[in-house]
Design a binder for these strands. Sequence first.
DNA 1: GGCAGCATGTAACGTGTTACATGATTTC
DNA 2: GAAATCATGTAACACGTTACATGCTGCC
Lengths: 194, 194
Amino acid sequence: MAHQTTGTSELDYILLCLIRMHPDISGYDLRSIINKSTGFFFHAHLSQIYPALKRLSERGLVEHTLVKRESQPNLKLYRITEDGIDAANSWLTQPFVFEYTTENAQHYFLKLILMGHAESEALLAYIDQGIAAFSHQRDLLAEYDLQTEREFVEGADPIARSRYLTVWEHEYDFMLRELNERVKWLERLRGDIA
Amino acid sequence: MAHQTTGTSELDYILLCLIRMHPDISGYDLRSIINKSTGFFFHAHLSQIYPALKRLSERGLVEHTLVKRESQPNLKLYRITEDGIDAANSWLTQPFVFEYTTENAQHYFLKLILMGHAESEALLAYIDQGIAAFSHQRDLLAEYDLQTEREFVEGADPIARSRYLTVWEHEYDFMLRELNERVKWLERLRGDIA
DNA sequence: GGCAGCATGTAACGTGTTACATGATTTC
DNA sequence: GAAATCATGTAACACGTTACATGCTGCC
């Protein structure tokens, strides 16, 4: 069954959650809110959004009302359907796969900011998963010693070598501290929600 | 001249910098070091690395020696050429374009950890650009009030609405604090290099 | 005997970006 | 009068991921 297609892109679910938050929204306005508000974590082009809305419509997860306007393109205002709510909930409660990269962490926090409509228990479970994963990651990193990196530049000229290591050691400190801050942040957030 | 190709992908320059750090390295080992050491910021598949090395060879920026082995694929050990050093330096000193997304910030820090071979002044200039950009971003964010977000969920049911806002306010605090930490971090790093 | 790692690659596919196409309204 | 914003979309291209292809070595 070579090359099977999943058809479940992340963008589709992000749009679905945003349409749920704010019914009767156009594709154009969805891009604005994405680029403004989730802007730190995520951004999308209109050329991605329009086909995504088409896919969601074909799957029956959203529907739109057409606002006819003269000498301008018609407005399409989208709202979520019952099936869409089920699909959104099932996406939100699907267990998150942690991978220990900053990119993956961004996805975790992006999903977190879309979780307001989920059940309380689902949200708390999601946060608990995050606390477990990020504190584990922090503990692993705390044991790390940059030995691989030191060896990697062993043959390089001493001035360059020392500059590489200075930057890397600083970066290492920052990542460790940031991970620790994120864990504490998740714990505070959990307290404020429960 | 519709659809012009640049041919200057970031991966090519990352590989170029790594080969410069550690001469006589194979494609396979390049992936290992990328996934281990730059792993937080960046990762690459072998199926991207092999074509990238081919491109670099064709442009004369790297060359390889063939280590013949029986009943196993031959090893290709890459090293940087004089032209490669020029290309790497010119990439490293090209002014960084800031965009105020976490993704863009990752690129900034990735380039920073590859800068050990650059001139001292170039490295300090790069750090200064970062300090200016991130503190500006921090100041902009400090003035932000989540008004757009509050309005966006005005129509949603009150329980969901309050959960969205709680998460978003926490996230906002974290981002502001993190930006501030990064600026202080860059200032400390600058002090330790100069 | 199976699975992970070493070592090279190509082909297909999915996702994201830039360019093209159209055209009115508002702001500088 | 030029540029940005509103509003929809398609086409081409660049980049990233998964699958395919091959085959030896070392470990459990």
